[in-house]
Amino acid sequence: MPLSAADLTAIRLTLELATLTTLLLLLLGMPLAWWLARTRSRLKGVVGAVVALPLVLPPTVIGFYLLLSMGPNGAIGGLTQALGLGTLPFSFAGLVVGSLVYSLPFVVQPLQNAFEAVGDGPLEAAATLRASPWDRFFSVVLPLARPGVVTAAILGFAHTVGEFGVVLMIGGNIPGKTRVVSVQLFDHVEAMEYAQAHWLAGGMLLFSFLILLALYGRRQHRPRWS
């Protein structure tokens, strides 16, 4: 086995982080995307821009601000300390919070697009059949927007797996807690352990390709919703 125990720990941790982040983002992103898709509020532009920020900001910038704000002197740090939770940097929970920010647009934007594509027609039809708002969302919108939900989940998961800068800034490189694959890979390269680095890097490359293949391959032989 070319992968060491430390590599495997990092892989397991990365998968846990990506899974938890994706589930939370779907849960939190759904109402946000729905609001963005339906609202006529003037705030739509502002909220949309904030959601898109992690797309363009260097991850180290996000990581640095998270490090400051989650620290003992920061706003989030003050809150978590008042709640008796301590501070978030150097913990798995901190990485989850960082990943939520980092991968937010990759989940919210596909959801928003899918919700917008559903349009008013099916919703109005369901309303005339006396479907409640919840019923309309779960029985009409979600099935119609299913491809968008799958895309959101895949992109959110893959993007979190590839996360590096944010983890580097707030993680503290603790085995089993914050040392994810990308950081482990960086360690190998820094230590000039190029053979081990190749195994991890090659694995990441293959994984990313397969995920994108699942995404784009799926689109080809399935008709889009109309």
């Binding site: 989650m70 490189n173 603790i174 820094e190």
Partner: peptide
């Protein structure tokens, strides 16, 4: 907690996180 380099080790302390 480990910084990737000495600059980051310093940063963890200067921000009060360590």
């Amino acid at each position: 907690v480990e910084g990737q380099n000495i600059t980051q080790a310093y940063q963890f302390v200067s921000t009060g996180n360590a």
